[in-house]
Amino acid sequence: MPGRVVVITSGKGGVGKTTTTANLGAGLALEGYRVCLIDADIGLRNLDVVMGLENRIVYDLVDVVEGRARLRQALIHDKRVENLYLLPAAQTREKDAVNPEQMKELTAALAEEFDFVLVDSPAGIEHGFRNAVAGADEALVVTTPEVAAVRDADRIIGMLEARDLRNPRLIINRIRTDMVRRGDMMDIDDIIEILAIELLGVIPDDEAVIVATNRGEPVVLQSRGRCAEAYRNLVDRFLGKDVPIVALDGHSKLLERLRSWMALGRRPVSG
């Protein structure tokens, strides 16, 4: 059975797609799954930097598509985690060096070898987005708790649905409980009420993420820390385990209520 091709997307840039891809991928690989990360942000690659694999790149995605390298040659094996591979983007090429048909072929070939193929999407809704979603079986939408980011997430969800990526799931990144409590930040239920999709996880805003990123080491690999925990939680929920969304002191009740509300929206046909 081929693996699942999952696109990580957002609409607005800088909300944490690349960080999410790196951590979800590393987390899945730690669980023993075979995982390949694809950096589809051609021209602005940075998944390799976040993974600390920049100095190992010989070939990239465009080299594979244009036949200069075989897929296996271009895949970079992660230096820490068994079963984790990266297909880097080309730094120097234009976005239109690849088309959706080629991306479909590429992801299909990878899905033969891997349990999960995670595609890190570029920002925006144009060519790069079409490439990133081309071969995807499912989509994860990342947003921060900001009005503009949520608006763009909504836009993207509409576009995913139009492409038959029906039930995209949501990751809310960089939440700050202190600001939410003061009413200075959008609440989780405000966001869910607008986007009306399933919430897969909530990641706190934490400088540990930035420090880890600068070291080229996904934070999920750390043994302790609330972000590492939040990402492990995300991995579990992604794998279908019924774990509560990371307890954000006092917010779990609210989340329970939200989840039951979501479930209600997908009530089976009664007849």
Binding site: R151, D152, D154, R155, I157, G158, E161, A196
Partner: peptide, 8 residues
């Protein structure tokens, strides 16, 4: 039927 989203 369904949610009308931003941009639609």
């Amino acid at each position: 039927r369904g949610t009308i989203r931003s941009g639609q």
